[in-house]
């Protein structure tokens, strides 16, 4: 049976949910996982996941700050064969470094894996999907949340290896800033409100959601024209054309001019109290409810997810 080397990613002191997904992906094609925990973080959590054969904790000073070069040098000493990492920014960087070090290919951001090994990854921002066969060693990064997570239930041994590397990046200054609200044309998630929001003040509820998922806030023309919302927030034919991964329309009827600006969004969630509102015609997910009921529920579901 084939093993995968998995590089764990943590979220504070715990494993990041994507680590469970990496292990789940390996199990889904009948493989065991050897999980590498940088600096030994969350090693016992990793050892208790089903499908994990062994945990290797790589302990060294270099893990104090992120330097992909140092991390990959230290981790490389214990990597073997096929390597799975999360396609997070750090995961991609470590993955690319490991692949170059080992002179093996790297496939980033796959969304499916099957025996063979056959993987799929979206290309051209999702306008096409590519299928690749991997016949030897490779580094593969997995898109977060695209794979079934492995369950707890295991007791793998933990080996600890002391291995550090030179850090070449030094931090001069940490700048804590509330992340600025993104512009609708840049954001990956947009939450837009329409006349159904009742008043411009009620947009603060949409802002709350935007804070949780790092979204931009948009508006229908009605809101811009009648309530004085800035024009740069207007989505539609005479506003911005947007193509986020997720567009959330709240209290927007879905007039053709509004649809012109957002119908190419990858996913659309509509919240509207009128079951016949045309916005439901383009929505992937529709919730027939007033925003007063739906938004607080959305807020708590999202914060739970993000915590």
């Amino acid at each position: 049976m084939m093993n995968f080397t998995i590089i764990a990613e943590t979220n504070g002191e715990n494993l990041h949910p994507t680590t469970y997904q990496l292990i789940g992906a390996a199990s889904s094609i009948g493989s065991k996982s050897i999980v590498i925990c940088p600096n030994g973080k969350a090693e016992s959590e990793a050892a208790s996941i089903e499908g994990v054969e062994k945990v290797i904790s790589v302990v060294g000073d270099c893990f104090d700050i992120f330097d992909g070069g140092a991390w990959s040098t230290a981790l490389n000493t214990v990597c073997e064969g096929k390597i799975l990492i999360s396609a997070s920014p750090n995961g991609r960087e470590i993955g690319a470094r490991l692949a170059a070090k080992r002179n093996i290919p790297i496939i980033q951001d796959i969304v499916s894996i099957s025996e063979g090994i056959i993987v799929k990854r979206p290309i051209y921002s999702g306008k096409a999907v590519e299928t690749l066969t991997v016949s030897g060693d490779a580094v593969i990064t997995l898109r977060p949340n695209a794979f079934e997570a492995a369950e707890l239930g295991g007791a793998a041994p933990i080996n600890t290896v002391n291995q550090s590397a030179d850090i070449k990046i030094s931090i001069q200054e940490a700048i804590n800033k509330a992340s600025e609200r993104l512009d609708v044309t840049e954001a990956d998630i947009i939450i837009s409100g329409g006349r159904g929001m009742g008043t411009i003040e009620n947009f603060s509820h949409l802002e709350d959601i935007a804070d949780i998922v790092d979204a931009a806030v948009g508006a229908s023309r009605a809101v811009v024209d009648e309530w004085g919302m800035p024009h740069r927030m207007q989505v539609g034919q005479t506003g911005k054309t947007v193509t986020p991964s997720l567009y959330i329309a709240v209290g927007i009827s879905g007039a053709i001019q509004h649809l012109a600006g957002m119908r190419s969004s990858k996913y659309i969630l509509a919240i509207n109290k009128d079951p016949d509102a045309p916005i439901f015609g383009v929505a992937d997910y529709g919730i027939v409810a007033t925003w007063e009921e739906a938004i607080p529920a959305l807020k708590s579901a999202l914060s739970e997810l993000k915590s």
Binding site: I104, P105, I107, I118, P122, I123, G126, K127, A128, V129, E130, T131, L132, T133, V134, S135, G136, D137, A138, L269, P275, F280, G281, V282, A283, D284, Y285, G286, I287, V288, A289, T290, E293, A294, A297, L298, A301
Partner: peptide
């Protein structure tokens, strides 16, 4: 040791799903 097998259009999106009532927010 990787081989490009094919490039295909993305899978068709499933038809829209509509839920009545705010209690379905967490499902969505």
């Amino acid at each position: 040791n990787i081989n490009l097998d094919s490039q295909m259009p993305p899978p068709e999106k499933a038809a829209g799903q509509k839920f009545e009532g705010a209690e379905h927010v967490s499902t969505v």
